[in-house]
Amino acid sequence: MVNFNGTLHDSSSNLLSIENRGYAYGDALFETLKVVHGKVLFWEDHYFRLMASMRIMRMEIPMNFTMEFLESEILKTIEANQLLKATSRVRINVHRIEGGKYRPLSNDIAYNIISERLASDFYSLNHNAYTVELFKDYYIAPGLLSTLKTNNKSINVLGSIFAKENNFDTCFLLNTEKTVVEALSGNLFLVKDRVIKTPPLSEGCLKGIMRKQIMELVTKLEGYTLEETAISPFELQKADELFITNVIIGIQPVTKYRKKEFTIDVSKLLLEKLNTKIRLS
C-alpha cells in the first residue's frame, strides 16, 4: 500500500502523471527512514531536515505538516503494509505540484510514503569484505543544494553503475576541489591515530542524519578527537580505518581501498554505542 497525500492506495495504482515535477525536473525531496516496531528512529532530526530542505527549495509547507501529523501518516502506511510489528525502510517523497516549466506555477506540494520490510531490528556490523574505489568521472559542486536529499542523483546512479561494472561495493565521490566528500549512499568517516575525521558540509556532503548521530557519539568517545575537515584522496590509504554511515545500515566498515586493508575496531565500538543509544531513547 502507498500513502498518497494521506490516502492509502494499492501499490499498483497509477498515482503519478507524466507531468509530475519530480519526474520532469527533479523538483522533489525525499527522506529515507528506519522504523523499528512502530518507532521512527531519529524522527525529530529527519523532520527538521525535511522542513529546512523544503524552505531552501522554496516549497510551500502545508499548515498541517507537523511532526505529529507526518509521523501518524508514516505509521498508518506501515500498518497498512502489516509492518507495524516489524522493521521497515520508509521513504517520504515530497514534490511540487504540476504546472509550469522550470518556473513552477505554484509552490504547493504533494507527498507520498512507501515502505518495505527490513531483516534486522537493530544495527549489526557487516563483517564481509567491502571494497571501495574513487569515482572520478563526475564531481560534486559544493554548496547548499548538494547537502539536500533531492531527486537529482545522477552522479550516485552513474557511480553505482561504475562500481557494479568494476566489482566494487561502492565508490567515494569527489568534489570539484578533488577532495573526498562522501560515499554513494552515505557519509564518510576516517580514523587515523585516534583522530576521527569527516568532511564538513561546506565540502558538499549530504547533511546525513546518521552522520549527526555518529558525530555526537564520537565527541563522547574517550581518547578520540573529532575533526570536520577536508579529506584528500591521499589520506585514504594512510588511514587506520574508514567507515560509511546512513540510517538504514548504521555503520558500514570499509575493508579495502586499492592495496590498503583496514581495521574495524572503531566501527564496532561506535555501533555498540549507537544500539545502546537507540534502546535507551
Rank of each mutant, 00 (worst) to 15 (best):
F65S: 13
M1A: 04
P200L: 02
E165P: 12
V191I: 04
L221I: 09
Q252Y: 08
K192W: 14
Y257K: 10
L206R: 11
L188D: 11
Y139M: 08
H46I: 10
L75S: 13
I251V: 08
L242W: 02
N275G: 01
L184M: 10
K136H: 11
K164Y: 07
A129I: 08
R89E: 01
E19P: 13
K207G: 10
L16N: 02
N107Q: 05
N128G: 09
D240H: 14
N107T: 13
M54P: 02
T66H: 12
L148P: 00
E216I: 10
E177C: 00
A52F: 13
L105M: 00
R91N: 04
T179Y: 10
E98M: 01
T87K: 00
M215K: 14
F69L: 11
M57V: 02
E222T: 13
S281C: 13
S120H: 05
S106E: 04
C205Y: 00
H127L: 03
F262S: 06
L184T: 10
V94R: 03
I78C: 06
S146R: 02
F69G: 11
I140M: 11
E79Q: 09
T32G: 13
I61G: 15
K220F: 06
I264P: 04
L105Y: 01
A110T: 11
N107C: 06
N128F: 06
D265T: 14
L145D: 04
L271S: 04
N14D: 08
F168T: 04
E228N: 08
L173F: 01
V254N: 14
I18M: 14
P199V: 01
A163Y: 13
Q82M: 09
V181I: 06
F172I: 02
Q252P: 04
A52Y: 15
F234G: 02
T179A: 13
I97S: 07
R211N: 11
C171V: 09
P62I: 12
L148A: 14
Y23D: 03
E79I: 01
